[in-house]
Design a protein around this nucleic acid. Structure first.
Length: 257
DNA sequence: ATGCCTTATTTCATAAGA
């Protein structure tokens, strides 16, 4: 099974590139974030053989799961999920080919002083509880998406730039560790060029070309799935050229169970 | 970088992103 996750930064703006990428990469299951639509373009991906389940409430956020291997038990949001204060489209779960898959878009946090930061930590605490239940119900569980946290200082291009910023604070990293303590393992993808497994580069100032990026898109999988990882890579080609997302997709190939 | 791009919208300005 080929599994992928990609923050597309608007599925509307990215639709031609997304469709081209799906056709060439041929993932079986795709987690999307920041779709930024209430009405997902299901017909376009269905034409490529995918079923689609989406959860988007407006101009911000929005997540989806696409699958060629079945799409069952779809859950939009999770029990106890906080809002800001209203619900946001930040998590969707589905069972695809026997694997329980969640696509998540963790709140950004903005700054450690911002109410959005407290919301981020509360949201992470709440999804940990929900994922504990998910793991009890599904032996093969994978949580993919834009976590908006760099797990270590090696996951940002220059730690000194991020001192005092969100995405690197101890509380955020502890929230990630709490997810791992459920028995979820960080599937670190290989960069296709250079040494850094970054998945996001700011649009400005040639950051991508200088490889000044961050690893904030993560794949957290149960041991059962992590042991099946044949390869995992960051498709930096998808970050190139005209009209890219500011995130690159992660592609994970799993051997047969 | 106190916003050097990009997105969508309550558009010719703003909010948000990380």
């Amino acid at each position: 099974m080929r599994l992928a996750t990609w923050n597309v930064n608007s599925v509307t703006a990215r639709l031609p590139r997304l469709l081209e990428w799906l056709a060439s990469t041929e993932p079986d299951v795709v987690c999307l974030q920041e779709t930024k639509v209430a009405a997902f373009p299901s017909g376009e991906v269905e034409a490529l053989g995918y079923e689609a389940a989406a959860y988007g409430l407006g101009r911000w956020n929005g997540v989806a799961v696409l699958s060629k291997v079945g799409l069952a038990e779809v859950a939009r949001g999770f029990p106890g999920e906080p809002g800001f204060p209203e619900p946001e489209g930040r998590a969707i779960g589905a069972t695809c080919g026997g694997v329980r898959v969640w696509s998540v878009y963790v709140p950004n946090g903005r700054t450690p002083e911002d109410p959005h930061y407290a919301y981020k930590l509360a949201w992470l605490g709440a999804i940990r509880s929900a994922l504990a239940d998910e793991k009890a119900a599904h032996s093969d569980l994978v949580v993919c998406g834009d976590f908006n946290i760099a797990p270590t200082d090696a996951d940002v291009w220059d730690p000194s730039v991020f001192v005092g910023s969100t995405h690197v604070t101890p509380a955020e990293r502890e929230a990630l560790a709490a997810l791992r303590s459920l028995g979820l393992h960080d599937v670190v993808p290989k960069p296709m060029k250079g040494a850094n497994p970054f998945t996001y580069w700011d649009y400005r100032a040639g950051m991508f070309h200088q490889d000044k990026g961050m690893r904030i898109d993560l794949v957290y999988a149960t041991r059962s799935l992590a042991d099946r990882v044949a390869t995992a890579y960051i498709d930096r080609e998808a970050r190139k050229g005209k009209g890219p997302s500011d995130h690159a997709p992660i592609v994970v190939d799993l051997t047969a169970p």
